[in-house]
Write a protein that binds this DNA or RNA. Structure first.
Lengths: 243, 243, 243, 243
DNA sequence: CATGAATGAGCCTTCATTCAT
DNA sequence: TATGAATGAAGGCTCATTCAT
């Protein structure tokens, strides 16, 4: 019994080891740069061994993506607990997004692989479910806040917009700006010097625009965000330590 | 003289033929799925011939991306001419985005390859410049409208936000929603049933939130957008016919 | 234990098999004529297998060259043990050169690839060292004999000539004549009918010219050489059998 | 008539232009590095045009080699006229060799291509004859001197050695040392620091060893060679100017 | 005679995956 | 379960040569 569980622990550890080796390669050299040969030789295990842990390369990639999504989820969960009003909690999640973008750049990059059709199709349904659950949980957290706001009458949804669709707008603007920031060769050349701040202003405008109480001017919003960001820092490290 | 230009026409046509063959492959099977062998055998030309037209695979991909970006640019240019007030013209560009997303899905996908580092790095500076110009022109069109609005006092920018950064917000929310719509395995499962409409509402909220005159309620906004979309349709076809 | 070593033996044997297939191709058709495709299809192994044994084509070539250089080295080592006086031992090495030229023509050709810059540059340092060691060992053997002669006062070096530079002269004349013999389209047409004998005479003249005792007339020299050549024959075969 | 000869002149000039472009490429990047594409684009002519001047790549290479051989021949011819006694004239040709090695390194490299089997086989008989003639002429010059010495009784050939075979020894030692110097990765590491001087000493030893009158000690030989080298300099430049 | 696009066989190399040990 | 050699299809790319204009 003990024997078996030790073996299982070793196995799990090996799985983890594979991911630790694959991660930096995937981040810096992409899917093509990641090769089973390289992973195998960088660990001190044989190529065949890796196939005992992951049925194919794609699964390794998705496993890494899941890790990153889980990190985001945990951060979201902590962030959703901050603050009193729903609006502040909503802003806390915006801050979590910003935080994630700035401090977990690699994780943000890893998450993207989930969106690659070819990789997604080759992965096991089990892992696909993990991803769906994680994504669902994040959505739940945010839409839960929206629903709280609705119940508190701090917010009223426009006709034909669900709570989730409200969230989708914030998701889209944050996600889009992150991608553009990461991949646009020349944002500054286009006159966009501080994209992060711009997105803050847009988010504040959106929240106010939806008349989410209490309304805030940009300065107040910005101050609140700064406070939230500072509150997130120790939370983030405690998450990291748990891992 | 005629002789020469006929040869050149034939050459150009061949270049085009390559792109026509490569395009659906790239769209449906991605960069990996696209292979010179395949393109060559699908045309009735030798592999070497392709290399007389494109120095490498990446250039084919970028050439296709440029086509798509040019299409968007043309659509934007036409769209920017619609309507009287700056606000309506701004909405026209939003409509152009929506139109592009719905009717040029493939082009949207093709555009993304520009953001792939590896592909970008292997391409010629000439084509890189084409892309930068195209992107710059699109930005110019939109930020031009913003600047018009400012001059007409129909809009006032918040402190610390440039015209381009205002545009960036709209860019990000549109772009982000497009990507998420295209690649998220399960938007409806998350409760997002009509992402396009949701983004419309967000954009209206943003414009109103920035107090861009004339303010509009959602119904009016939606009607105006519907009109704009209809206006765009013939423009789009005239662009297509020019090609 | 036995298990492992059998695998290793099989592996080594496969490596060897590759070399056996590549060798005649390289000899008769040169570097260009040698292709991985050809080697692979001529063995009954997959192309990829070859790359498990040699990281690139160049390494195969150098591996063959090393084999030939080793053969020469062994012959030199045996030859250097023949005879009493240093002069006779020196002549023994000359005989070894002659022997190698006549009986290991292919090996002589293979050795030359070492001198190809492009090939050298692509090879592993490990093999480069093997080559340097082999060359160094040969030089050592010959210059050792020269030094012996100096110690025995059978020879006195001219001012400004080191032992190694004395050797260099013999190396050059032998090497040069071999290359010319191998590659000159028409030595007989130039009046050179017995280049090997000519070089013998030159070598004798040089040795006498440097006053390397005991001096010999051409006839004696020639007889001694004939004896040495006969002594080398069994040595050569024993080396061959060891392989 | 005039028309025709002008055309022919232009043609010849074009041939020359091709060689001028191909030469540095061949020297610095070898046979593989030389490509018709490159030559064509570096001149302002089409690839097909080159084929009007040379039936294949190999012929270009041999044409360049012939130029270099001709240069050597001319230098030999001038050198053979220097000095009174046959021995000095013989030394003059040795000096010419040395001169050629040091001042026409590129030409020495180009000459070698003649010895490449694959290239030789693909060349026209016409050019092969040119090469044979050139080589023959060089041999004639040197063996002529030997024959002069014999007639003057300044030299007596050993039994079984023809005049040409005597020359062959000198050819071999000079040629061999040149190749070794050019291609041995590490002559100094083997203790050979001044190969050129070493070969001088060997040549003197050989001449004296064959009792070629007037005998010379090394110092005298060296001085005479220095004088000869200086005499060759202006000759060389006059040849260069003629071209 | 010049042109230069088309050719297409051929090259070296990679790598995810399998499977006998 | 770990191993790692073998696989072999596939890939991107080159280039000497031809030939219609």
């Amino acid at each position: 019994m003990v024997e078996l569980s030790r073996k299982q622990r070793e196995l799990e550890q090996r799985t983890n080891e594979i991911l630790r080796v694959a991660r930096p390669i995937l981040i810096s050299e992409g899917f093509q740069g990641l090769s089973m040969d390289r992973v195998a030789s960088q660990m001190e295990y044989a190529k065949g061994t890796i196939y005992n842990h992951f049925p194919n390369k794609e699964e390794i990639v998705l496993a890494l993506a899941v890790e990153s999504m889980e990190l985001r989820r945990k951060l979201f969960e902590r962030a959703s607990g901050i603050g009193g009003t729903a609006r502040i909690r909503m802003m806390g999640l915006g801050a979590a997004c910003e935080f994630f973008t700035h401090h977990c750049t690699d994780d943000f990059v890893l998450e993207q692989w989930v969106r690659n059709q070819g990789i997604w199709d080759k992965s096991t349904e089990q892992r696909q479910n993990l991803i769906r659950q994680c994504e669902g949980r994040c959505m739940e957290l945010v839409s839960g806040i929206v629903r709280d706001a609705l119940m508190e009458h701090a917010l009223e949804l426009p006709d034909g917009l669900t709570a989730e669709e409200l969230v989708f707008g914030f998701w889209a603007i944050n996600y889009g700006s992150q991608i553009l920031t990461h991949t646009s060769p020349s944002l500054p050349a286009l006159g966009i010097n501080n994209p992060a701040n711009a997105i803050r202003i847009h988010c504040c405008t959106l929240l106010n625009g939806f008349r989410w109480q209490p309304l805030m001017d940009y300065a107040t919003y910005s101050n609140e965000m700064a406070v939230l960001m500072e509150t997130l820092t120790p939370m983030f490290w405690s998450i990291k330590n748990e891992q």
